[in-house]
Design a protein around this nucleic acid. Structure first.
Length: 478
RNA sequence: GGCGCGGUACCCAAGUGGCUAAGGGAAGGGUCUGCAAAACCCUCAUUCAUCGGUUCGAAUCCGAUCCGCGCCUCCA
């Protein structure tokens, strides 16, 4: 079945037909590195990471995700904290990469930086000037939007409507209020690069046009980013790239929805702002990733502490199931996996679900019954067929997880990480807990259940849940 | 004002013309357990914001209304 992707430009799902057979080229707008990544970044890059992981099952994929490491915000922030802009950008790139690694977001094939592509950017601006698509004013270069037919198509905007709209501080040097900067003359003290128009730096949008064409060609398959980039960022990219090359730009436009907090857009001014680091302090990275995948990437997703707590409980269940599964079929047995049509449907259905515009929410829902089945089998007396079925299911979950970026670490590692963080959070004294459990074990041995229950109650009051099993008593924090 | 998205059970959330409206959480009942916990099983929307319309048939298409949100300015 063909892969269908919702295309912002046409407003409908379109079948992916790669320009080069067997190969998909995709560009996703990366972060402007002037601060720590927030959960909106996490959503975007988890969404595209998952899409790319799925695409790689079928195609050779070239995935480019840039870093915007020179820009007004970086300069402003650097001045505020008294740091060199380049150093500040480099610092936040490192932090960003730590976050992405935690979230199991793979690196893109190419992660180009703006500052390392000045020659390409200047060439592109020069081409646009030469073609009459752009003009120079006092060392600035502007793109002339009214020279570009079809401006506003992506954002479904009409140039005349926008013209009528009242705008603040229209730069009178611009020929049209919507004209945007390709190159900005440097003010004193700002970082600059030499150019035919004097010392300056790239405008807000030109970098992506320059870097995408360098690594993917003038026309490529998919361009992605957050919904907020549709206008003007992506609109402007289209204008620049097409005006320069005279060829189509990206074939399909993918945009992810926002992360909302309290049903409102997360923003610094509203004070409902969370960095990835904030969240990872309280929750496991797999919890955050799972949470981000439970809603379709195009819909808004609502973030709250309560929801994350519920998600973590679910993720813990998944990993506990996997841990039990691994303990059962992990070693020893060389019995080949057993499968049948029904069991094979799991991956087939996953494929079909992901083919429909990367429906991770449904995929995760479908996976529920697999986990239930595993637990069901696990608590029976296992015959050979059941054991071999479990082997097959383990392979299935690993395969599906590899696309979703879940279950890539040993379950034990994740569970221990979750437990350790909770203990640190609550400041629970592990030794005291274990001492109480030992006392309770004695009481139980002596059939003094009243005392045993009293101790359990005491532990419960500390937030400690205990589980008795044939193998002994284990505990966890509620 | 212009453009766009959405309103599905107590909560979260799939589903965009046709089998019984996925799945998760919560809740209630059960199996297991000394009792619990965990796991498993069962129950839990004749109904998809409202009102009309199209159709043999609509949560799904069309129109109107109400409500929520986003973009139009840096933003994932």
């Amino acid at each position: 079945m063909p892969l269908k992707i919702y295309d912002t430009l046409t407003g409908q799902k379109v079948a992916l037909e790669p320009i080069h057979a067997g190969e998909v080229r995709i560009y996703v707008c990366g972060p402007t590195v002037y601060d720590m990544a927030h959960i909106g970044h996490a959503r975007a890059y988890v969404a595209f990471d998952t899409a790319v992981r799925f695409l790689r099952r079928r195609y050779k994929v070239t995935y480019v995700r840039n870093y915007t490491d020179v820009d007004d915000k970086i300069i402003k922030r650097a001045a505020e904290v008294g740091e060199d802009p380049a150093a500040l950008a480099a610092r936040f790139i490192r932090e960003f990469e730590l976050d992405m690694q935690a979230l199991a977001v793979n690196n893109a094939d190419v992660q180009p930086k703006v500052t390392e592509h000045m020659a390409e950017i200047i060439d592109l601006v020069a081409t646009l000037v030469a073609k009459g698509a752009a003009y120079v004013v006092d060392g600035d270069v502007y793109f002339a939007v009214d020279k570009f037919e079809g401006y506003g198509a992506l954002g479904r905007r009409d140039l005349t409507d926008m013209e009528a709209g009242a705008r603040v501080e229209v730069d009178l040097r611009k020929r049209h209020p919507m004209d945007f900067a390709l190159w900005k003359a440097a003010k004193p003290g700002e970082p600059f690069w030499e150019s035919p128009w004097g010392q300056g730096r790239p405008g807000w949008h030109i970098e992506c046009s320059a870097m995408s064409s360098k690594y993917l060609g003038e026309t490529f398959d998919i361009h992605g980013g957050g919904k907020d980039l549709i206008f003007p960022h992506h609109e402007n990219e289209i204008a620049q790239s097409r005006a320069a090359s005279g060829k189509p730009f990206a074939k399909v436009w993918m945009h992810n929805g926002f992360v909302n907090v309290d049903n409102q857009k997360m923003s610094k001014s509203l004070g409902n702002f969370f960095t990835v680091r904030d969240v990872l302090q309280k929750f496991d990275p797999q919890t955050l990733r799972y949470f981000l995948l439970t809603t379709h990437y195009r819909s808004p997703i609502s973030f709250s502490d309560q929801t994350l707590k519920e998600t973590e409980a679910r993720v813990k269940y998944l990993y506990e199931t996997l841990a039990r599964l691994e303990a059962k079929v992990g070693e020893g047995s060389s019995a080949p996996p057993y499968t049948n049509d029904e069991l094979q449907q799991v991956v087939a259905r996953f494929e079909a679900t992901m083919e429909d515009d990367f429906n991770t929410a449904k995929a995760l829902g479908d996976l529920s019954e697999v986990f239930t089945l595993v637990n069901d089998l696990l608590q029976r007396d296992l015959g050979d067929t059941e054991l071999r079925t479990l082997r097959f299911l383990k392979a299935t979950l690993t395969e599906v997880g590899a696309v979703l970026g879940l279950f890539v670490e040993p379950p034990k590692v994740v569970l221990e990480r979750m437990a350790a963080r909770k203990q640190a959070d609550r400041g629970v004294d592990q030794k005291a807990v274990e001492a109480l459990i030992a006392l309770r074990a004695e009481a139980r041995k002596a059939k003094d259940f009243a005392r045993a229950d009293a101790i359990r109650k005491e532990l419960l009051a500390m937030g400690v849940n205990i589980k008795d099993s044939a193998a002994g008593t284990t505990w966890e924090l509620a």
